[in-house]
Design a protein around this nucleic acid. Structure first.
Lengths: 335, 335
DNA sequence: TTGTAAGCGTTATCAG
DNA sequence: CTGATAACGCTTACAA
């Protein structure tokens, strides 16, 4: 069984008693075809279970309808929220997402982009990692649009969407000071991606302007367990910090759990904590974390809108900086 | 700029001074081509930035290399872990994942399958929801393989992977009894998907066998906030339960937070809680939840292996039941 | 091993 | 509005 395989426009045409071009036109929005022919074609198609072959269509039109999503750590709350929003918006725009997981190797962003080229994707949205300059040039030459999320690098060509991390750092500093914190720390992973580093340096600079020195600790990957480890390191210091800005929410959650369970600290009375991302768990009762929201829907909208724009315009405005809203909860003592 | 578009095998052939079939063969594993020609072709391809057009290749071979992942609630911890594992394993098997988000509408699983047919996907893996019988038949007729995850329905045709929920229910009942719990409850969402219902009925039956009646509460969707709401309902009862099996971890986390914060209950001293899925957060310090692990890697392996199998074998063994391991943590009083 | 030629299922062009 | 015909870029007999 099952050797019959797919049904083609040819067969539909025969069945409906029309030419194959009539069939094609019926399934091409805005093509001129009479209501009667259309009806006959649709009936025959339904009966036979015909579906336009997007492979062949993409071959002809040089536009596959595929958009490649390139990401690592897809199971992470923030990343998965982004993937979810992206797939949704792409579908709304009539596109379909191809998801490439780059967890394994390091040069895999480049490999992912080659996949995108091979499938003649209309665009690639890079949610994590950074492609090599040469492959970027290759993509652009091939008409494959590139969107870079959360990368403040000075890459040429790709459309870049990122957040104003400096501004966020300044705002959270003010909040810490108003809460009466005296010894501030920044809890970072050792990943040193642009956005993480921007938060770190932004926080340090903002504190410097107030004459305060920030204790910085970096360790491991950007995860919950890293947060616990950072708590271990920061809270055993003689000059124990009383206000900690964590590079993201995952780290903050780990930090809070360790602070409470291993150091019996009360939050926010003895320790104020802030995070970044506003992942779902930040709103959970055990954390109720003050953090910055990176509105994934806005990012997705922004990216997908840009895909719909003409090439001319696309090249004109190569980047966008969004603002991260401060979500005030109870992990910082109220002013 | 960028109007040059993609480079074809034709151009590579010209550049390398060989026929276009030589180029094709060079990129077809196991085709007969001399080392010398191969070298020339590879050099020319590299120089020109040639990439095989998978659209055209798929058209010829009737095998696109695309596997469609159909899922709702992709941002959820369990679901995103599954998506991550699936994409990884598919890539290892030389396939590529197309992700279709079915959050929006209800009949969207069917729509997603139509997409899969249109792109001539080699298979579709349905992570949530249930397709209509007619579309399933259409897929199968078209040679599109179907995998159904966590669906114990009596669907014909698709390969089904699910967990032994009954067994899990029996085991957790034993644990509750050993912990000295007297009044048991099952906290479920109103989604009533097969796996959720299997856990519920399995738990009820197991308790019945011991002469115990289970309080069942169902509410809303399968989420953290539902867990809080269920705590509200269950913990205000006159016969307040002291052992609660939650349909999944997300519900359990919400339940625990509400139990502690709104009812000042100590877990596990005054209340034992168990969940299902073993999402990352179940292991976080604030929850340390006893739960069942649904090993996403095993599921993904199982699904992807089946895709590689010949059609004959594929039809022979239409389903697999995996065992969910009990992950013992501190949310149930120790025996 | 190599090249030639015939498809794969579309869409776009161009007469009618 | 409709139908033939020529691409699109590739793979695969078949013949050399």
């Amino acid at each position: 069984m099952a050797e019959k395989e797919f049904v083609s426009a040819q067969e539909v045409a025969r069945r409906a008693g029309v030419s194959r071009s009539a069939v094609s036109r019926t399934f091409t929005p805005g093509a001129s075809v009479s209501a009667e022919t259309r009806r006959k074609v649709l009936a025959a198609a339904e009966e036979l279970g015909y579906h336009v072959n997007h492979l062949a269509r993409g071959l002809m039109r040089n536009e596959s309808g595929i958009v490649c999503l390139i990401a690592s750590e897809v199971a992470t709350p923030y990343r998965s929220a982004l993937v979810s929003a992206m797939t949704q918006k792409l579908q709304d725009a009539g596109k379909i997402a191809m998801l490439v997981n780059t967890d394994r190797s390091d040069g895999s962003v480049d490999a992912a982009l080659r996949q995108a080229i091979s499938y003649r994707a209309d665009a690639s949205i890079i949610l994590s990692g950074l492609p090599d300059k040469s492959i970027v040039k290759l993509c652009l030459k091939n008409g494959l649009r590139l969107v870079l999320i959360n990368r403040d690098d000075d890459q040429e060509g790709p459309f870049r969407i990122s957040f104003d991390n400096d501004e966020a750092a300044r705002r959270i500093l003010t909040a810490f000071l108003r809460a009466g914190c005296r010894r501030l720390a920044f809890a970072n992973s050792a990943a040193m991606t642009p956005s993480l580093m921007a938060r770190e340096t932004g926080f340090i600079k903002a504190a410097e302007a107030e004459g305060i020195e920030v204790i910085v600790e970096r360790y491991g990957n950007t995860s919950y367990s890293t947060g616990r480890m950072l708590a271990q390191r920061l809270l055993t210091r003689a000059d124990r910090p009383d206000g900690v800005f964590c590079a993201n929410d995952l780290i903050a959650c780990g930090f809070m759990d360790a602070a409470r369970q291993q150091f019996s600290l009360s939050i926010p009375d003895q320790l104020s904590v802030a995070g970044f991302d506003n992942i779902e768990q930040a709103g959970w009762g055990s954390y109720d974390l003050t953090t910055f929201s990176q509105p994934v829907d806005a990012i997705a909208d922004c990216a997908v809108d840009w895909l719909g724009v003409t090439q001319q315009v696309a090249l004109a405005d190569p980047s966008v900086t969004l603002h991260a809203d401060l979500v005030w909860r109870s992990s910082i003592r109220g002013g």
